[in-house]
Amino acid sequence: MPFRIGFLLYPHLTQLDLTGPAQVLAAMSDSALHFVWKSLEPVPSDAGISLLPSDTLQSCPDLDMLLVPGGPGQQALMRDGAVLAWLQRQGAQASWVTSVCSGSLLLGAAGLLKGYSAACHWAYRDYLPAFGARIDERRVVVDRNRITGGGVTSGIDLALWLVALVRGEEEAKAIQLQLEYAPQPPFNCGRPELAGAALTAQARQRLAADLKRLNGV
């Protein structure tokens, strides 16, 4: 039986939180990817790219790995009983429970991070203790069978870690090479401690504006 990987879709998720790790995990040997939402209708992302579910919350099989992306639409799901119940059920039986960006807050809301160290996007990581999790500022955090990534691009790193744990380091290396994943960003400002106070404040303002636009404020 293939290694079943489930990605939660929802309106206004950050598409790279999902598509980055999906690109890696689709190349993993003997794997099957499931993209899950309440219906099979296209789901709009925060980038204007719609994603097509393959399964509903009801039809999705038991998963070996659960991945929850983040994004501005995440806040609306924090009290969504159907979604939280699905996360609780899948998280209780999956071998690996993972998230990218603010997706860790959804795992927390479902009670899946109590007593675990976890990562989150730098702008939202301070909310983790409210769900019984310990803040870890590393880009990817592995705590037992919980793997959580920081901001958006960390999902690629997280997926490579997962491949190494499930299929071995050599396969993970081969996939990294296949994707030519050798990042060389033009600016060294991808974390607040590198960017400085002024740029970090500007980024916070942009994030807040995105939420207001989404909520029609």
Results as ranks from 00 to 15, higher is better:
residue 57 L to I: 03
residue 97 V to P: 00
residue 202 Q to I: 11
residue 189 C to W: 00
residue 110 A to K: 00
residue 83 V to P: 11
residue 35 F to K: 02
residue 37 W to K: 00
residue 161 W to H: 12
residue 75 Q to Y: 09
residue 37 W to Y: 06
residue 95 S to P: 00
residue 22 A to P: 15
residue 56 T to H: 05
residue 141 V to H: 04
residue 34 H to L: 14
residue 85 A to C: 15
residue 55 D to Y: 01
residue 51 L to N: 11
residue 181 Y to C: 05
residue 38 K to A: 14
residue 130 A to Q: 13
residue 77 L to P: 01
residue 130 A to E: 00
residue 116 Y to Q: 00
residue 40 L to N: 09
residue 201 A to C: 04
residue 206 R to T: 12
residue 76 A to N: 00
residue 163 V to L: 06
residue 54 S to K: 09
residue 49 I to Q: 03
residue 173 K to Y: 07
residue 120 C to Q: 13
residue 191 R to V: 14
residue 138 R to S: 05
residue 48 G to A: 02
residue 188 N to F: 01
residue 117 S to F: 07
residue 195 A to G: 07
residue 185 P to F: 06
residue 44 P to Y: 13
residue 43 V to Y: 01
residue 139 R to N: 10
residue 205 Q to P: 04
residue 77 L to F: 04
residue 115 G to W: 04
residue 184 Q to K: 02
residue 86 W to P: 15
residue 215 N to I: 03
residue 198 A to D: 10
residue 200 T to I: 09
residue 200 T to W: 10
residue 81 G to Q: 10
residue 160 L to A: 03
residue 150 G to W: 12
residue 213 R to M: 10
residue 3 F to M: 02
residue 129 P to M: 10
residue 182 A to K: 11
residue 2 P to T: 13
residue 122 W to L: 02
residue 27 A to I: 06
residue 62 D to W: 00
residue 199 L to Y: 09
residue 128 L to V: 07
residue 148 T to L: 10
residue 29 S to W: 09
residue 174 A to V: 02
residue 116 Y to K: 09
residue 194 L to M: 12
residue 197 A to F: 08
residue 90 Q to E: 05
residue 58 Q to A: 15
residue 211 L to K: 10
residue 205 Q to M: 14
residue 112 L to R: 05
residue 192 P to V: 07
residue 169 E to K: 15
residue 111 G to K: 06
